[in-house]
């Protein structure tokens, strides 16, 4: 079972391996959520949702259910 962004802990990083699920909005892909790009979990909102991420040098917040669709390899 591969990891997703939702499995990251605060401060951890990963490399995106797959973001092709049909439920990931195109907008997110265009903001840099693409295979090969780095992602870092900066902060979590209360109740661990939404997630505040640095994806490919873009700072954005997405909900946990979307984050769970983006697969990663953990690094560092």
């Amino acid at each position: 079972m591969s990891l997703s962004i939702a499995d990251l802990k605060k401060g951890e990083q990963g490399i995106i391996t797959d973001s092709s699920s049909r439920n990931i909005p195109l907008k997110l892909l265009e903001m840099g959520c693409l295979p090969g790009n780095k992602v870092k979990l900066l902060q979590l909102a209360p109740f661990s949702d939404p997630l505040y991420l640095d994806i490919n040098d873009s700072f954005l917040a997405i909900r946990k259910d979307t984050a769970a669709l983006i697969l990663i390899d953990k690094i560092g």
């Binding site: 439920n23 909005p25 907008k27 997110l28 903001m31 939404p50 505040y52 873009s58 700072f59 954005l60 917040a61 997405i62 909900r63 259910d65 979307t66």
Partner: peptide, 11 residues
């Protein structure tokens, strides 16, 4: 539709 929530966190 499914959830669709992307917020940019500007500087």
């Amino acid at each position: 539709r499914k959830t669709f929530f992307v917020v940019e966190m500007p500087s």
